[in-house]
Design a protein around this nucleic acid. Structure first.
Length: 245
RNA sequence: UGGAUAAAU
């Protein structure tokens, strides 16, 4: 069962959904009984393949068959609904998780914080962030990345800066996602010089910049009217060995 | 030995 589960997961992560499902059918055919971990991997695969209904049905099925979903199983199905835009259903599943006595862990909080923020309820997202800290659940870099990204999208510079300070106070190493959220936020506020300065700092520090980072600085340059700089970064990107997509 | 969470256009 461990081998089949790992194989299903590997194919799913490689985007080979049909082959992942084939492996699941094969294990059933040869009489290997899937456990909760297997079903979780299959749910995740269904979700990534865009079949939210299928994932949801599998979750209901597994409960009906007597499997007891753990926090990972709930996070899997919650996140599938959240990413597909079914926020209410995600929150409903989150409530159910807590109702059955399961505790949120950092990953579960991260997923729910993102869910609330995506749904447009940033106060609820921040509320969960406070709750996790109050309950002794340590936010990680991803927690901050999620919060900073959403604050940046709304141009909430003060909050973004506060979160950035908190990252450093927590002794976490800001990565390019964290840094780019700050760049975005400056750009959103029309503080082009600050955005550009920070981006140059990231470059100087040798922080790995990928096509997403370059596309964002190009976009910011363009939106601020600095067309020459936009083209400049486009060339710089290629000189750095990053291919445009 | 296996499962869940973060950024652009």
């Amino acid at each position: 069962v461990v081998t089949y589960t790992k194989m299903i997961d590997l194919h799913s992560k490689a985007g080979l959904f049909e082959q992942a499902f084939d492996l699941y059918r094969e294990m059933l055919r040869v009489g290997v009984k899937p456990d909760l971990v297997t079903l979780c991997a299959v749910m995740d695969c269904l979700g990534k393949a865009g079949d939210v209904v299928g994932a949801s049905r599998l979750f209901d099925y597994l409960k009906a068959r007597g499997y007891r979903p753990d926090a990972v199983a709930y996070t899997t199905i919650i996140d599938i609904h959240s990413k597909a835009g079914f926020y209410q259903k995600a929150v409903q599943l989150y409530d159910e998780m807590r109702a059955v006595g399961l505790h949120s862990n950092t990953v579960n909080y991260n997923s729910m914080i993102d869910c609330y923020a995506r749904s447009g309820n940033l106060p609820a997202a921040v509320g969960l962030f406070r709750e996790m800290k109050a309950l002794g659940c340590t936010p990680d870099l991803q927690t901050y990345a999620i919060l900073m990204t959403h604050h940046a999208k709304l141009g909430l510079l003060e909050s973004c800066l506060q979160l950035f300070e908190e990252v450093q106070r927590a002794g976490l190493q800001p990565n390019s996602i964290i840094m780019m959220a700050m760049v975005d936020c400056f750009g959103k506020k029309g503080k082009f010089t600050a955005a550009l300065d920070l981006f140059l700092q990231i470059q100087e520090k040798g922080c790995p910049l990928d096509v997403v980072c370059y596309t964002r600085i190009i976009d910011i340059c363009g939106k601020c009217g600095y067309y020459d700089k936009a083209i400049g970064f486009y060339h710089e990107m290629q000189q750095a060995g990053v291919e445009p997509n």
